Simulated assay, not measured.
Amino acid sequence: MLSVFAVSGVRYGRLDSNVTLACGKSPTGIPVVWHLNRSSALPWHRVTSDGSLVLLQVDQSAQGNYSCYDDRGLLLHSVRLRLGHPPGLLSISCQVPNHTHVRCSWLESVKTFLPAEYNASFRPCIVDFSRKHCDVDHPAFWQTIHTLRVTETNALGFETTYVRFQLHKLLKPDPPESVLAQQLEGYPKRLNVSWNFPSSWPLHDAFPLMFQIRYRPQGSMYWSEIYSEDSSVVIFDALAGHIHQVQVRARDEVNSESQWSEWTPQLLIRPWEGQEDNTKYYFFPVNTEPETSTGKSHNPVHEDEGNLGLVILLVLFSVVILTTVLSLVFVVWMRQRRRHHATKQELTSMVKMKSMPI
């Protein structure tokens, strides 16, 4: 089957098919000689009676500059051959980082090996050909379902791909930014974590975010979690003396069907240990710049006094329980003793009565 298309002096043919190249307007019956890149070595082929070159089941090695000459060596015609495939369906995905912007990108399901153009229809979608994506500003969130149509065109044909989606379900903020974890001086079990809204989420007041913070001692399998509408939280149950892993992510607070952002990069931080100049952030990778602690000072002796009071209370409670048990045992013993004494008196009386004369 003939599968050649001409564009600006270039012939395009399908890979794995037969490709026919004509020798210009050469007279029929005149023998011609074909060269590929100035060499007489040609791929698997045959030459027809009119001088056309038929390349059989071509692969990438058949690409190049073809020239045909008459029997005197005179150049009759030359052409450049490029090989590839027509477009196939695209794999399209759309990202919605906020309520004012949508970016849809695509990947080829068929490697065409040929230059292509794209046309997108969605409100409209402004196409970046080199990066294979298009952008929509201020999309209609009130519309339930949107349809995007992307058409890929190359020298061998075109293909149109349709995709339908719901913006409110694709809404996925970028991760929070400038995340910091701080020690709180005087509190060996507390950490302060703060962050900024993603810079790609411009309308903070109109569209608030919900934040999820997770943390765990380094090496543990289990995460603890906190949810917050603010841009900072205090962790109250950190494990004293241990480095902790901390991460934050965000989601639209109102839209329950939206997606959580990716987690922020991991932070490593150890709670306060009672040493001066010990407030540092341990990032992944480690950042050794010191930070200013924002926590209020506190005397840890109060925590020890609280523990001592609890011990004294437990001891007093134990003494009361023991006294009660001993009292119950004594009462039971006294009752048993009185009952035994009464029984003995009754037996003595019966013996005396039997011994008396009638």
Results as ranks from 00 to 15, higher is better:
residue 90 L to F: 05
residue 27 P to V: 01
residue 53 L to R: 06
residue 23 C to L: 04
residue 44 W to Y: 05
residue 52 S to K: 07
residue 42 L to D: 02
residue 49 S to K: 00
residue 68 C to P: 14
residue 80 R to Q: 10
residue 41 A to R: 09
residue 85 H to S: 11
residue 45 H to M: 01
residue 65 N to R: 13
residue 40 S to W: 03
residue 54 V to Q: 15
residue 33 V to W: 06
residue 89 L to D: 15
residue 77 H to A: 14
residue 80 R to N: 07
residue 46 R to C: 03
residue 42 L to H: 01
residue 16 D to W: 03
residue 33 V to I: 13
residue 28 T to E: 02
residue 17 S to I: 01
residue 44 W to Q: 03
residue 65 N to I: 05
residue 43 P to M: 08
residue 43 P to A: 08
residue 58 V to L: 10
residue 39 S to V: 14
residue 27 P to E: 07
residue 52 S to Q: 05
residue 18 N to D: 04
residue 56 L to H: 08
residue 51 G to H: 01
residue 79 V to M: 03
residue 74 L to Y: 09
residue 16 D to I: 14
residue 58 V to I: 11
residue 29 G to I: 00
residue 79 V to G: 02
residue 88 G to F: 05
residue 37 N to Q: 11
residue 90 L to D: 10
residue 45 H to I: 00
residue 67 S to W: 15
residue 37 N to R: 11
residue 30 I to M: 02
residue 45 H to E: 00
residue 88 G to T: 03
residue 26 S to C: 06
residue 31 P to E: 01
residue 24 G to Q: 11
residue 49 S to P: 03
residue 86 P to C: 06
residue 34 W to V: 01
residue 46 R to P: 03
residue 62 A to M: 05
residue 35 H to W: 09
residue 19 V to Q: 07
residue 29 G to P: 02
residue 92 I to E: 10
residue 35 H to K: 13
residue 39 S to K: 07
residue 37 N to S: 12
residue 71 D to R: 10
residue 83 L to K: 06
residue 87 P to A: 09
residue 83 L to T: 05
residue 69 Y to L: 09
residue 67 S to D: 11
residue 62 A to L: 04
residue 90 L to V: 15
residue 83 L to W: 06
residue 87 P to F: 12
residue 72 R to D: 12
residue 15 L to A: 13
residue 29 G to L: 01
residue 20 T to N: 13
residue 33 V to H: 03
residue 81 L to G: 03
residue 64 G to Y: 10
residue 73 G to Y: 11
residue 89 L to E: 12
residue 40 S to M: 02
residue 37 N to E: 12
residue 64 G to I: 11
residue 20 T to P: 07
residue 23 C to V: 04
residue 76 L to Q: 12
residue 54 V to E: 13
residue 70 D to I: 07
residue 23 C to Y: 04
residue 24 G to V: 08
residue 22 A to N: 02
residue 33 V to G: 06
residue 63 Q to H: 04
residue 57 Q to A: 12
residue 43 P to Q: 06
residue 91 S to C: 14
residue 18 N to Q: 12
residue 28 T to Q: 01
residue 39 S to N: 14
residue 15 L to N: 07
residue 44 W to H: 12
residue 15 L to W: 15
residue 17 S to Y: 04
residue 59 D to L: 00
residue 91 S to P: 14
residue 15 L to F: 15
residue 83 L to H: 04
residue 27 P to C: 05
residue 85 H to L: 13
residue 52 S to T: 11
residue 19 V to M: 07
residue 25 K to R: 12
residue 63 Q to F: 03
residue 74 L to Q: 14
residue 80 R to M: 11
residue 25 K to F: 11
residue 82 R to P: 06
residue 78 S to I: 15
